Computed example of a mutant assay.
Amino acid sequence: MARPFKQQRDTTRKAPQAAPVEVDADGVALPQHTQRLHKLLALAGLGSRRDMEELIANGRVTINGQTAQVGAGVTAHDMVRVDGRPLRLPFEAELPQVLIYHKPEGEIVSQDDPEGRATVFDKLPRIKQGKWIAIGRLDINTSGLLIFTNSGELANRFMHPRYEVEREYAVRVFGELTEEQMAMLTQGIELEDGPASFDRIIAQGGEGANHWYQVIIREGRNREVRRLFEAFQLPVSRLMRVRFGPVNLPPRVKRGSMLKLEQKQVVELLEWAGLPVPKAPLKQLTQREKDKATTVFVPKVRKQRGSVLNRVPRELDAEGSARPNTTRSGAAREGAKFGSKESSDRTSNGRDNAARKPSAKKPVNRRIRQSTDLAPTKRQTKKTS
């Protein structure tokens, strides 16, 4: 009987390297299959790792009913809650979602605005896992490229100052820079919050008093581009971001439009950022899903923000403190606010005297007027006399 072939042992093959061991804040090795809590929270899309450390330090995260500590480790069997709500942690990295939005002027990049202005977060589609994070900010008067993702680590890789990711803008100013001023802007000038400079500035021409410039900067300080031009008494009349790192604003994405990056493009972003790419194979999309994924769409507002004029006015009580007005209707409150005579006539006695639809209530039984109730006429007085 022939003996089976004995495979020669490959002596040149290296032994597989062990996976890195997670350690806690004190440097003690965590048990196997345990991962850092703040890392998993960032992967879940709740924010960057630094933000998650602050979240844990504030006592807003619990593990199995106990307040979590910074540097704590968790396993797949632990129950983690954030602000009392259970959270499913992604122990296996999932492919994040990335959206490109051409922000128009007049919208703010904030999730909460006391003035009730239009915000970009009102237009974002709903997401099952985590939340949308805006990569970088644009002020209300700035338009252009805005990136959203549900990966806190990817957002941190774009925005953290130590990575110095390039931001490219198209700027229109009222006036024109001299060659000496352009050289000063690349060398650096002193602003209120420290020195600042452009990596590159290129004149793009213009008509009349307006001139366009292409600038590249590696910082994201508040209104930095505008302040650099205003240092030479050149006000910026239009500012548009056209590139952020490796992501360019596609020409087909017009103002107010949005585009979702394909899976392969997201993988390329993760590789550029040096982040781990999920080992799971990419999801197989149908032809309809592929067409939808590459289609530019105009997002719809998910919720209407009430304007200042539609807010319920408040009255003052005897002590001068505000109290909600609950005795009058909305039309009466609007009329009282603007002092309209028409509204005051409509709302007298607390009801609207305008034409209404017939109500379904039963008619009230009323006493029929008798002839004795009427005042005697002149003819009746003559007969009686």
Rank of each mutant, 00 (worst) to 15 (best):
H102C: 04
Q129I: 00
I108R: 03
A183S: 11
K341A: 13
R200G: 05
A15K: 11
L95W: 05
Q214L: 14
A280P: 07
K361V: 12
L145F: 11
T294W: 02
V225R: 08
A355C: 05
G116C: 03
S48E: 00
E207W: 08
R9D: 01
Q304E: 10
G152K: 07
V277T: 15
G144Q: 11
I140F: 09
Q214I: 05
G205N: 08
E271G: 11
R226S: 10
L316G: 05
L177Y: 00
V253T: 02
T119Q: 15
G59I: 08
K128P: 06
Q7A: 14
F121I: 06
V171M: 04
R367W: 10
V61D: 01
F148T: 09
K382R: 15
K39T: 07
E190M: 15
M1D: 12
D26A: 13
G335C: 05
E262A: 06
D373N: 14
G256Y: 03
H38C: 03
A19H: 08
V308S: 10
E180R: 05
F244K: 00
V74D: 12
S321P: 07
A318W: 13
P96L: 10
E192G: 02
K383W: 07
K283T: 15
V23M: 04
D199S: 13
P114A: 08
Q370H: 07
H38A: 04
G245W: 12
R252E: 15
A155W: 03
K292C: 02
L30F: 08
G73P: 02
I147W: 00
L259P: 00
P4W: 03
R369N: 12
V82M: 01
P195H: 02
R50N: 03
M182K: 12
M159F: 08
A44V: 04
H211T: 15
Y169E: 03
V215W: 09
V171H: 02
E334W: 12
A76I: 14
E54H: 11
R227T: 02
A57W: 01
R328Q: 15
I147Y: 01
V267N: 10
V21E: 14
F91Q: 07
R314C: 03
A322R: 14
D193I: 13
G205V: 10
K279G: 12
E153A: 09
V28K: 09
V61H: 00
E22T: 09
L239M: 09
A68R: 05
R311Y: 03
V242P: 02
G27E: 00
P235K: 08
G59P: 06
H160V: 01
E271L: 15
K300T: 10
R243G: 10
F297P: 01
G84E: 06
N353Y: 06
G206W: 00
A273C: 08
R356I: 02
G256K: 07
S151V: 13
F232I: 01
E164D: 06
L138P: 02
E207K: 15
I147Q: 00
S329E: 10
M240F: 11
G306C: 10
E319N: 14
D199N: 11
I368W: 12
T12K: 00
R333T: 11
P235A: 02
V173R: 06
Y169M: 08
Q66M: 13
D199W: 01
